[in-house]
Simulated assay, not measured.
Amino acid sequence: MEFGQGCGILRHSPPPGAYHHRRYAPPAALADWVAHFWLEHWQFESDVPQTREVLPHPSVHVVFAPGRSRIYGVQLSRFVRQLEGKGCIFGIKFHPGAFYPFLRRPVSGISNTSILAAEVFSNAAAAEKEVLTCPQDRHMVQAAANFLAAHLPSRDPRVDDARHAVEQIARDRSVTRVEHLVVRCGIGERTLQRLFDRYVGASPRWVIKRYRIYEALESVAAGTRAEWTDLAQELGYFDQSHFINDFKKLVGCSPTEYAEPLA
């Protein structure tokens, strides 16, 4: 099953040529661990590099790339890549909290960085070759699923707690403060902070802000022309200036500047 693109893409203007990004649902046996598999390949007609800029979700990714397969922790700011020429990479996006049993140390330790896939998976090089040499997308998905299924750790009930907490934030825009999440999860704030540090890789406050900014971006993308003050209040900000400052830090420009291409 192929998925849609979802949110998180800020800027993406490929030069002449072909570019494809597709997402695929995991098999049932991996559904508790994996949000989706994704495949990106491109072949540009010129030597002009393309800048792809995204605002990532609070998830860990295992990425297979020729000779450089890595595990990417939660990226706390914008993630910018340069694509040029011809290439193909394949990724596994884990549910928030679900990578901790593989890593066996606080996921916050790899936030804003990446590590070699071989540091966690001893046969990563062989898996990289098998996945990337498959002739069709479905074969790549199957090869990656087989690889991961062979490495599944024991179930950890705290993974479900972490995932549930993040889902509460993602689904309910009224969750705008950590104390709101404390009430919904029924655990103390310090316990919640430790849970997010160990399993998610970012603080509850950071995750809340990230999802509220996603909603602001969606409003702009939909052509909504609400007053920024009203939007800031809807998303739980104390005032418009705090909202605009956060927006600038994450997106790289003000809401008004970001909306200009839609005018």
Rank of each mutant, 00 (worst) to 15 (best):
C88G: 01
G97H: 07
G188M: 11
D137C: 07
H242N: 04
I208E: 03
F99S: 10
S13H: 13
G201I: 02
S154D: 14
L181N: 01
A29R: 15
P101A: 11
Q43I: 09
A145F: 10
I115G: 08
S154G: 14
V34H: 05
K249Q: 03
H12C: 06
H139D: 12
T133Y: 06
V60M: 02
P27K: 12
D47H: 10
I9K: 10
D230L: 01
P58N: 09
P153R: 06
P16I: 08
G6Y: 15
P58M: 06
W38C: 00
E130F: 07
G188P: 10
L83M: 12
K86Y: 02
E128S: 14
A31L: 08
I89T: 08
Q50K: 09
T51C: 02
D156T: 03
A143P: 06
Q193P: 00
Y237V: 06
A145L: 13
V200F: 12
G186A: 06
Y100N: 05
A216Q: 06
T191S: 13
H36G: 00
P26V: 02
T51Y: 02
Q142D: 08
Q193N: 13
P15H: 04
V183S: 12
L235Y: 03
V175D: 01
R205A: 13
F121H: 00
Y214V: 02
V74A: 02
D32M: 03
H12P: 00
A162C: 04
H20D: 05
F247D: 01
E128R: 10
H61Q: 06
Y237N: 03
T176L: 02
F44D: 07
G236F: 00
H57E: 11
V34F: 11
S122A: 15
H21Q: 15
H151T: 10
W206Y: 13
F102T: 09
Y258R: 15
I213W: 01
C7V: 09
R52A: 01
S114E: 14
D239T: 00
V159F: 02
S77A: 11
P106T: 08
